[in-house]
Amino acid sequence: MKAVTLKEIKQELNTLSTQEIQELCLRLSRFKKENKELLTYLLFESHNETGYIDSVKSYMDNEFEQINTDSYFYIRKSTRKILRNVKKFIRYSQKKETEVELLLYFCQKLKDFKPSIKRSTQLVNMFNRQVLLSKKIIGTFHEDLQYDYNLILEDFNL
């Protein structure tokens, strides 16, 4: 079965009633966890972006506390998992300010992590990639926001 284009899906949705659209959404949410998470964001959290950012930050805090620090292998594996989930949460929001805020918080948590990430080249590279991505996004912001975020970025020199 080949998937149809987004335009065709949009046209078909215009022909359906609200009850049918509701049933489709509920059916979609049963198949993938990501679909359910996206619907949760859209229905309950999209109107309160700061609350959403705070909940993702608390998720990061919790995950960083649970990292197994026995070896750098486990630390790398856990931080990649955290970053993958944070990127997924960023995709739900699709707001650049949220993306920068969460990436900078991730970088701050990684920088303050004990044992130091300086002893692992992969972790330092992961940190640097996220800082560069944040700088690139910040470059598209208004001058006032750029200034505020660049002040935060100055603290990230390893």
Rank of each mutant, 00 (worst) to 15 (best):
A3E: 11
A3S: 05
A3P: 03
V4W: 01
L6C: 01
L6T: 10
E8V: 03
I9W: 06
Q11K: 13
Q11G: 04
L13G: 03
N14C: 09
T18M: 12
E20A: 15
E20N: 13
E20S: 12
L24Y: 10
C25Q: 11
C25G: 07
L26T: 05
K36E: 12
T40F: 14
L43Q: 12
F44C: 10
S46Q: 14
E49V: 10
E49S: 12
T50D: 14
I53K: 06
I53S: 09
V56D: 02
K57Y: 03
S58N: 14
D61Y: 10
N62P: 01
N62K: 14
E63M: 14
I67Y: 00
N68M: 04
D70V: 06
F73L: 10
F73N: 08
K77P: 00
T79Y: 02
R80K: 12
I82H: 02
N85F: 05
V86D: 03
F89H: 07
R91V: 05
Y92R: 06
T98P: 01
T98S: 07
V100K: 03
E101K: 04
L102E: 00
L104V: 01
Y105G: 03
C107R: 02
K109R: 14
P115N: 09
S116N: 00
I117A: 01
S120T: 10
Q122I: 07
N125K: 14
N128S: 13
Q130K: 06
V131Q: 00
L132V: 02
L132Q: 14
L133P: 04
S134F: 02
I137T: 13
G139C: 05
G139R: 04
F141P: 11
Q146S: 09
Q146V: 02
Y147T: 10
D148L: 11
D148P: 01
